[in-house]
Design a protein around this nucleic acid. Structure first.
Lengths: 246, 246
DNA sequence: CAGTGGTCTAGACCACCTC
DNA sequence: AGGTGGTCTAGACCACTGA
C-alpha cells in the first residue's frame, strides 16, 4: 500500500487515490450504506496502513463530489438522497414566486417493456433487454410542474410496480437507493424547447403546442454506469430551471 | 495573522481563509492579472507569515473554484477567459451532431440607455443609471444558434462601442477582463421555454411562435457583485443546452 | 469527558518544467 | 541543477458533538 503501482506507469496514481478507490469499493459493495457513518479517519488510516492525512485527502475529494458528508464532531457519513440538499442537486426546478416546499410526486403508470435501440444504447443494454417505464407528474401547490417519462434497466429494479411507487413517501432516488441498492451519483442533462403534444399539454394543463422545456437526463451510478434515462417536460409558466455556473 | 479574529466570534475564519481573502484582494486590485503567474507557495508563505501548507490550502480552494489554475512544475496562474476550458463553463451550448469549433459571435447593436426598474434591481444600480445594451448573434457553422441581449453597467464599460465589439477577435468575457478589468467569476441562470417573437424568429431563422429556450443570466465578479444581465434565446433545433449534475 | 473532524505546522521526498 | 507544485508523514492543538 505504500508504493505507487509503478513510478512511470500510465496507471500510476497517488496513495490517496488508491485509498479513495478502496473506500468507493466499500460503498459499492454496501459495506457502508447510505446514511451510515463510515469509520473514523484514524481507524481507516490504521486499516489501510497510511497516515491520517492521506485518508483525509481521499475523503476530502469524495466529500467534494457529494459521495460522503463530513459532520464535525460526529463523523463522516455516506451521502443519501433522503436529504433536501441532495434532492435539489438533481432537480433544478424553482418556482417563479414561492418556494417548492409543497412538491408532490404523482406516479401515473409503470410497465415492463423490451429495450428499443435508443434505450438500449443509452443504458448500455442489449436491444430487447427488459426495461421498466415509469410515468409520473410533479406538482407544486396543486399546480402541475413536470411530466417525467423514466426508463430503467429491468434487472436492477426487479419488483418495481406502480403500487410501490404510489405507496412510497420518499423521493424516487431515495426509494431506489434504499429498496434496490442503486445509488444515483451523477447525471448528464440535455435541454431543449419543444411544443407540447396532446398528452403533455393535458397533464401540465397548458395549451397544445405551447412551449415546454424538455430535459433529457442520463443518470449514472458508481463507475459511470448508466442506470436511468429520463425525459422530463417542464412547464415554465410558473416555474423555471435553475443553474449555477461557476 | 496568527490568531483568528476571536475564538467565539461570528466572524471567525480559519487562517487559510484569511490568506484566501488576501490573495483575492490582490486579484481584485490587479496586482496579478488574468494569465499572470502568482508568487510561489513558499514566497506567499513568507509574505503572509504562515506555513506553506496553509497557503496551499487557500490556493486549493481558489483553484477548485476556477479562480486560479495550478500547473505542476510551472506555477500557479490567474484564471483567464482566454481559454476554451473556461469558455465552455459559461456557454453550455452543444451541437446535436458536430462539435462547436466553428463558433462565431456577430455583434449586431450596441447602445446607451438608462436603467429601468428591472435592470437597476438586477445589477444593483440606481434607477436611471447609465447602462449599455448589446445585441449579438452566435453562429455555429453558418447556422444561427443564440440571440443574446446583454445589459451592462455603463460605468464599468465606459468606452464600449459596436466597433470595438466587431473588431475584437476574442470572446466577450475575454474582452471584458482584458480591456475593462472586469472579470466574470460566477453566474446564475434561469431557463424557460418560450415562443419566438418576430425579431428572434427572423434572426434565428425559425418560424415565428416556434419554441425557443430562454436563458436569463446574471453574472457576478468578485464579492458577488452583479456586472451583467443577459437574456439569450437558444434555437434548439440543432443545438441543446448541456448540464452536468454532480 | 472522550471521540470526531478541522486547522496548522515542519520536513522529507517525488514529479514536472525550464534552462 | 534549481525551481515549481504534488504527495506523504507525524504531531500538536482547536472546535464541535453527545453521553
Amino acid at each position: 500500500m505504500n508504493q505507487p503501482s509503478s513510478i512511470h506507469s500510465p496507471t500510476f496514481s497517488p496513495l490517496y487515490r488508491q485509498i479513495r478507490e478502496l473506500i468507493t469499493r466499500s460503498l459499492e459493495t454496501g459495506e457502508w450504506k447510505p446514511g451510515d457513518a463510515i469509520p473514523s479517519e484514524s481507524e481507516l488510516a490504521v486499516r489501510f496502513g497510511v497516515s491520517q492525512g492521506t485518508v483525509r485527502k481521499a475523503i476530502d475529494e469524495m466529500a467534494s463530489e457529494n459521495l460522503l458528508i463530513r459532520r464535525q464532531g460526529k463523523g463522516t457519513f455516506v451521502a443519501t438522497h433522503d436529504d433536501p440538499r441532495s434532492f435539489f442537486r438533481f432537480l433544478r426546478l424553482a418556482s417563479d414566486d414561492s418556494d417548492l416546499q409543497t412538491l408532490k410526486s404523482i406516479p401515473l403508470e409503470c410497465w415492463r417493456a423490451k429495450a428499443g435501440t435508443d434505450v438500449a444504447r443509452t443504458l448500455a443494454l442489449e436491444t430487447g433487454a427488459p426495461i421498466i417505464i415509469v410515468r409520473r407528474l410533479l406538482q407544486c401547490a396543486e399546480r402541475p410542474a413536470v411530466f417525467d417519462e423514466i426508463y430503467l434497466p429491468g434487472e436492477l429494479f426487479s419488483d418495481l410496480t406502480l403500487d410501490i411507487l404510489k405507496s412510497s413517501e420518499m423521493s424516487l432516488y431515495h426509494l431506489f437507493e434504499s429498496r434496490y441498492a442503486v445509488r444515483m451519483i451523477r447525471a448528464d442533462e440535455r435541454l431543449r424547447a419543444v411544443s407540447a403534444d396532446r398528452v403533455s399539454a393535458e397533464l401540465l394543463q397548458v395549451a397544445e403546442g405551447s412551449p415546454l422545456l424538455l430535459v433529457e437526463r442520463v443518470t449514472f451510478t458508481y463507475d459511470s454506469k448508466p442506470v436511468e434515462w429520463r425525459r422530463g417536460y417542464y412547464s415554465t409558466q410558473n416555474f423555471h430551471y435553475f443553474n449555477e455556473l461557476g
